[in-house]
């Protein structure tokens, strides 16, 4: 469904992503794991069209995304939940959800409400806060709202950038559970960029491990779990405690 080849992203003179290949098949949950600064955000932002790569090919549902802006990619069936959630803090939960369907002008009023109800059903906490400004929600609720909003466009591919960012483990578990349901029951394909390896590998089928803008390792989730001491990627490898 998504095929990325030779992706390169540059910020000024700094190379954020350096020749990255990845693919996501229909119906999969794929996780892109990496420490801070490994190039996760650059990758997903390039996939969604928020940053322009200097090189590389991005194919989504057999169409070349290279010339399309972010909005056109949404219309094509891709939805990104950006790092830090990006809810419209001064607008109500309801308005945030409605705007999620912005790329589908055909759905209005009754259909829109149904879609919103459906999104709320996934995250019942949001229902109680329908007319509250999104900025007054807790971090976990904002993340749920951001996901629910992305679902309003009925995406074929949902891309999440660090959904666990700054959230308590309990909330992360809840979100992970919802994402699993989303994949199994509604057939949404999901790509998660995560630092939290567990959230990723517990629910994903396959994963990539990203280091310094390149794929360091790829495999199925159990393979990655067993083959690698994942903690090395976070707590710095063998030499971390000098005794």
């Amino acid at each position: 469904m998504l095929d990325v080849k030779g992706l390169q992203v540059r910020y000024g003179t700094v190379l954020g992503v350096d020749g990255l290949d990845l693919h996501v098949n229909q119906g999969e949950i794929v996780v892109l794991i990496g420490a801070n600064g490994a190039g996760k955000s650059s990758t997903v932002n390039a996939i969604a069209g928020l940053v322009r790569p200097v090189a590389g090919l991005i194919k989504f549902r057999d169409a070349d995304m290279g010339k399309l802006d972010a909005a056109a990619r949404v219309e094509h069936g891709m939805a990104l939940v950006i790092e830090g959630r990006g809810v419209f803090s001064e607008m109500t939960v309801r308005e945030n959800l409605e705007l999620g369907a912005y790329s589908r002008p055909a759905i209005r009023s009754a259909a829109l409400r149904r879609a919103a109800d459906h999104a709320i059903a996934m995250f019942p906490r949001l229902g109680d806060r329908f007319d509250q400004a999104a900025g007054t929600l807790s971090g976990g609720e904002q993340q749920m709202l951001a996901i629910a909003r992305a679902l309003m466009s009925s995406p074929k591919l949902l891309v999440l950038d660090e959904p666990s960012l700054g959230l308590a483990p309990r909330i992360v578990d809840e979100i992970a559970e919802r994402l699993t349901l989303l994949s199994s029951e509604e057939g949404v394909t999901i790509l998660i960029a995560e630092q939290n390896a567990s959230l990723g590998l517990d629910i994903a089928k396959r994963g990539y491990i990203l280091q310094n803008g390149r794929i360091a390792l790829e495999g199925t989730a159990p393979e990655l779990h067993s083959n690698t001491d994942l903690i090395r990627f976070y707590l710095g490898g063998q030499s971390y405690v000098r005794t």
Partner: peptide
């Protein structure tokens, strides 16, 4: 910092923050 190979050998003490 996130880079433990820098942080751990250098630090006299480490404070871990989670969710603020």
């Amino acid at each position: 910092d996130h880079i433990m190979s820098l942080v751990l050998p250098l630090s006299d003490s480490v404070l871990v923050l989670n969710s603020g």
